[in-house]
Deep mutational scan, measured.
Amino acid sequence: DRYEFNINGVHFTIDDAEEELIKLIEELLKRGARAEEIEEVIRRWER
Rank of each mutant, 00 (worst) to 15 (best):
D1M: 12
D1C: 07
D1R: 13
D1G: 13
D1I: 15
D1P: 12
D1Q: 14
D1S: 15
D1H: 12
D1V: 15
R2Q: 09
R2C: 05
R2N: 09
R2I: 10
R2P: 10
R2T: 11
R2V: 11
Y3T: 05
Y3E: 02
Y3G: 04
Y3K: 04
Y3N: 03
E4H: 08
E4I: 06
E4F: 04
E4R: 02
E4A: 03
E4G: 02
E4D: 09
F5R: 00
F5G: 03
F5K: 01
F5D: 02
F5I: 10
F5Y: 08
F5H: 02
F5Q: 02
F5A: 04
F5W: 07
N6C: 11
N6T: 14
N6E: 15
N6P: 02
N6G: 07
N6S: 14
N6L: 11
N6R: 04
I7W: 06
I7M: 06
I7A: 11
I7G: 02
N8M: 08
N8K: 04
N8G: 15
N8H: 11
N8R: 03
G9R: 01
G9T: 05
G9N: 08
G9I: 03
G9A: 03
G9Q: 05
G9P: 01
G9E: 09
G9W: 01
G9V: 03
G9H: 05
G9M: 05
V10E: 08
V10G: 03
V10Y: 10
V10Q: 12
V10I: 13
V10D: 08
H11M: 12
H11C: 14
H11I: 12
H11F: 11
H11V: 12
F12G: 02
F12K: 01
F12H: 05
F12A: 01
F12C: 04
F12R: 00
F12P: 01
F12N: 01
F12W: 10
F12M: 09
F12Q: 02
F12S: 01
T13Q: 11
T13H: 14
T13M: 12
I14Y: 03
I14Q: 01
I14T: 02
I14L: 11
D15F: 13
D15K: 11
D15I: 13
D15Y: 09
D15S: 09
D16E: 11
D16I: 13
D16V: 12
D16M: 13
D16F: 14
D16G: 14
A17K: 11
A17Q: 09
A17M: 06
A17E: 05
A17V: 06
E18N: 07
E18D: 13
E18Q: 12
E18C: 06
E18Y: 04
E18F: 03
E18M: 02
E18H: 10
E19G: 10
E19D: 12
E19T: 12
E19I: 12
E19C: 15
E19F: 11
E19R: 07
E19L: 11
E20V: 06
E20H: 05
E20N: 08
E20R: 06
L21K: 01
L21Y: 01
L21H: 01
L21S: 00
L21T: 00
I22V: 12
I22P: 01
I22M: 06
I22K: 08
I22Y: 05
I22H: 03
I22R: 08
K23I: 12
K23P: 01
K23T: 11
K23A: 12
K23L: 13
K23N: 12
L24K: 09
L24C: 08
L24Y: 07
L24V: 14
L24M: 12
I25Y: 00
I25E: 00
I25P: 00
I25Q: 00
I25V: 10
I25T: 01
I25M: 03
E26W: 09
E26A: 10
E26I: 08
E26Q: 14
E26R: 09
E26N: 11
E26C: 03
E27Q: 11
E27L: 13
E27N: 10
E27S: 10
E27I: 12
E27C: 07
L28R: 06
L28C: 05
L28S: 08
L29I: 13
L29G: 03
L29E: 03
L29T: 07
L29W: 04
L29K: 07
L29F: 06
K30P: 02
K30D: 12
K30C: 06
K30Q: 13
K30L: 12
K30H: 11
R31I: 13
R31Y: 12
R31V: 12
R31C: 09
R31S: 14
R31E: 10
R31K: 15
G32L: 03
G32S: 07
G32I: 00
G32T: 03
G32Q: 09
G32D: 09
G32M: 03
G32P: 04
A33H: 05
A33G: 06
A33W: 04
A33E: 03
A33D: 04
R34P: 14
R34Q: 15
R34G: 14
R34N: 15
R34V: 14
R34E: 14
A35R: 13
A35Y: 10
A35H: 09
A35P: 11
A35M: 11
E36F: 05
E36Q: 08
E36I: 05
E36G: 07
E36W: 07
E36P: 09
E36Y: 06
E37T: 07
E37R: 03
E37N: 02
E37Y: 08
I38W: 01
I38M: 06
I38H: 00
I38Q: 00
I38K: 00
I38C: 08
I38E: 00
I38G: 00
E39S: 09
E39Q: 11
E39I: 13
E39K: 10
E39G: 05
E39C: 04
E40K: 04
E40F: 04
E40V: 04
E40I: 05
E40H: 03
E40G: 03
E40A: 05
E40M: 05
E40P: 01
V41S: 06
V41Q: 07
V41T: 10
V41F: 12
V41P: 00
V41A: 14
V41G: 02
V41W: 05
V41D: 01
I42N: 01
I42D: 00
R43S: 12
R43K: 11
R43C: 05
R43I: 09
R43V: 09
R43H: 14
R44K: 14
R44Y: 14
W45H: 02
W45S: 01
W45D: 01
W45R: 00
W45Q: 00
W45A: 02
E46Q: 03
E46V: 08
E46T: 04
E46H: 07
E46N: 08
E46A: 03
E46I: 09
E46P: 04
R47Q: 15
R47S: 15
R47C: 08
R47P: 15
R47E: 15
